[in-house]
Simulated assay, not measured.
Amino acid sequence: MQATLVLIPGLLSDNSVWEPVAALADMPTYFADATKDPSIESMAARVVSETKGPLIVVGHSLGGRIAMEVTRQAPDRVTRLVLANTGHHPLKEGETEKRQAKIDEGYADFAGMIKGWLPPMMAASRHDDTALIDSLTSMALEIGPEVHEQQIKALVNRPNATEYLPQVRCPVLLLTGTEDVWSPEKQHREIQEMVADAELHVVENAGHFLPVEQPDLTAELITNWLNSKEEE
């Protein structure tokens, strides 16, 4: 049975983040929806229940957390795992308060919150890319402050991926940008050390929104890696 490509977006993101990968990949594709469920566990359970057979799971940021949880819930079905700009740590001291402040800011002035949130998520060279920023702003505004709160609370109550990453046996591709201050290279190298078969690519001139900052290169890295694994 042919594997299904599962594409999971991150915080305040939709399918458009992964469309270049879907366009380049020649396989059945399932776009996950990270806006409907209150927890990472239930987001992952939706993916597991709405798909059949083997899965190639690709997640960005929050979507990476969901992708890892899919692998935990259905280890015999996930044949490949791609994690972009994501993390594995449990909740850190002071994180709850910082994230609640961001929720409050979103309800007070969602457009203003997004305006301040986006630039640090991208490489410095992208800060003047009006078209990209406008596109990401429109995407986030469409999703809204209520879903933003739900996703932030899901992150606050996230599973501790460090507890089960060592049990992951499928090949893993890790991607991040040289200018990702939220999920830096060091974090991905820690994940790489925890799993049996992991490859890491650090992309120049990219920040936390790697899949939209460098869409063609991201799609190429993922599809080339998938093809190489088919040949093994």
Score class of each variant (00 low, 15 high):
Q73A: 05
D129L: 02
D109C: 06
M68T: 08
L91E: 10
G64L: 08
A108W: 03
Y107G: 09
E95W: 12
T51V: 02
G53F: 00
P90N: 08
V78A: 06
S42I: 13
K102H: 10
T71L: 05
T79V: 13
G63S: 02
D128L: 14
T130M: 11
T86Q: 05
K102R: 10
G63C: 02
E41N: 12
L118S: 03
N85A: 13
S125L: 11
I56H: 05
T86A: 03
R65Q: 09
H88R: 08
L91V: 09
A111T: 11
K98G: 10
D104R: 11
S61G: 05
A108V: 13
G116H: 08
G59N: 01
V78L: 07
K92M: 15
W117C: 04
V82K: 05
S49E: 09
E69V: 15
H88P: 14
G116M: 12
M113A: 15
R99P: 06
R46N: 14
A123M: 06
G53P: 04
A111C: 15
K115N: 12
M122Q: 08
S49M: 09
G53I: 06
W117V: 07
A123V: 03
L132H: 04
Q73W: 04
A108S: 10
E69C: 08
D104F: 13
M43A: 05
S135K: 15
S61H: 04
V82N: 06
